[in-house]
Design a protein around this nucleic acid. Structure first.
Lengths: 192, 192, 192, 192
DNA sequence: GATGAATGAGATTTCATTCAT
DNA sequence: GATGAATGAAATCTCATTCAT
């Protein structure tokens, strides 16, 4: 297990730094301090590494969201917590998030990819969690009357887009979490 | 010029379909009906093609935004028009947008890239236009009191993220333009 | 090691026959009976092969000179032995010498070449050995009073030039070793 | 004629700097300020340029030697003058000499080359001039009894080798002309 | 004479993957 | 499990040369 983790760690660093395509498996092996063959012992293919990174990260991400949402007192607060969690997560695991957000998940989702189903399911799960928050918010009166599905898409796209710009873009961003919460609350909340 | 355009058209199609990395220059040449050398005669490198696509597209995109913004009667309306234009543009030129949004612009922006400056300038210009709308909106009273820079980032990230999810993701999206305008207006507008 | 040597052998033959530039790495691989990739597995670049040939040859050459010089009874005799050794060596390892003398070492010595230091050191070592012979000859009285450094350059240039003309030129040369020894002895020796 | 000379000048510079192989004809055209096609208008092939440089240079070189030799009062003095002329020529036209000495003339002399005959004739002519000096020196008593042909080879090889080391090698050489004259005189002259 | 777009063969190098040890 | 030599297909890019204008 020791070697597998070394490989994973090396891959995450390199993929984040240079991108998936620009990183050779031999480089991963070298940085991990193992033989080239060993990489393929643990991960059948190079894409398998990417998939593993994605999957592990998404598991933690989804679990984190679920916890926040579960503990929120109403819909709008759940969304607030979700946004805050997203930003904290992006920062704490910025390398993994960079990897995933950069070359992913659209390669893995292409028709014919063996990972298509799994990946789509993960993305769908996130979408659904957001949608549930909205629906709950509409029931508890904290969120105004708008289309839950469309809005969930908007929020998910927004979070992904911002992380992408933030982690990969050429512009140095200010801290956005608070502003985004504010913006979204105004966008979603029922005006008193 | 005839051949150059054929190459460009072929490249846009293929990059949009399969991605930049998964497309060989030989395929571009074949689809364009020219010799491989011709591709490199017109674009010095493969990345040069990507850059050209980006640049041409961004020129039209920025010009489109400028026109909308200029003709808007106040700040919030400018934002509305900008969002609508973004969606229309993404649909009309969906192939180019897909190319750019998929593998871009983060490769071209890496340190050491010869395109870094140009690309960053384009992205910065868009950011600035949005920011100006917000500031104007605050002056004309149509937009509430929030941080213009942060909010501009949020909007830009949101637009990019949504186009990305929409054009590349595994989930089929409903029409979002109207919802997004609504969401943003609530998010930005000064409550009456 | 078996394959590496086969590649080396093939490269020496082909570079000697046709020159470095006119030989494709694919030809080397074919003649060695290995896959193209194998060539690059053992030698990182095509120039790496040239460098390896040079280095291996120079090691033997320098060692040979050192032995002759060490065993000579006085300075002028050391030079004589050195010249004879040079000619014998050029004949015995004529292919390698052809390779090196043809395209070399001036490519590898250009500014920016990763081999510059190593190559220059080798050439410098030869120069130094000759110079030491002269200095010793001046001490033991077998060599007349002349500038050691300049003369060492002259001798080295002469040996290289002759091998070049001999191995690569269009004119078929007679056996020169004896004549050259004679010429140099007259040129160097203290007249009795 | 203006353009042809610009091309020639550019080619000499570039071939001397980077070598014949490492210089593209397009670079020559660019530095000469002409279109790529123009290069081939004036010189049928890339090698034709090299050949032209060689030929023009050799004409001057041979003519220079002939003059010096003709005006010398005896054989050994003719050799002395020849050596001095060689060094002066190498310095005055160092770029052309570099070009020729670097990639030349062995490419042009290979079997199958259309230039083989012409080039060999030029080299042969130089050899012959040196040989004639020696023979004359033996007749006039200024040169001792040695084989004229072998010695001519030695001298030619020496001159070429030294220029090569001097112009292309990594070691900075001291001024050698005087030393070489001295060395050769001792090597050739009849001891009194 | 001059141009420069077009060519296409070919060169070097990369790299994910396999497999015998 | 681990290794790393070997593979060979494929990729990007170069470049001398041609030819229609």
């Amino acid at each position: 297990m020791e070697r597998k983790e070394a490989i994973l760690k090396a891959a995450i660093q390199l993929f984040a730094e240079r991108g998936f395509h620009a990183t050779a498996t031999s480089e991963v092996a070298k940085r991990a301090g193992v033989a080239e063959g060993t990489v393929f012992h643990h991960f059948k293919t190079k894409e398998g590494i990417l998939m593993y990174i994605f999957d592990e990260m998404m598991e933690a991400y989804i679990e984190g969201i679920e916890t926040r949402v579960r503990n929120a007192t109403n819909g709008i607060e759940a969304i607030e917590e979700l946004i805050r969690f997203h930003f904290r997560f992006s920062e704490e695991r910025s390398e993994e998030v960079s990897v995933v957000i950069r070359d992913f998940p659209y390669r893995l989702v292409e028709l014919g990819s063996p990972f298509r189903e799994v990946v789509a399911a993960r993305l769908f799960r996130v979408m659904n969690l957001i949608m549930e928050c909205i629906e709950q918010g509409q029931m508890d009166g904290s969120i105004r009357d708008l289309f839950p599905e469309e809005t969930a898409f908007i929020l998910q796209g927004m979070l992904n887009g911002l992380s992408r710009v933030k982690l990969l873009g050429p512009l140095k961003l200010p801290e956005l979490s608070a502003q985004l919460v504010d913006f979204c609350c105004h966008g979603l909340a029922r005006p008193e």
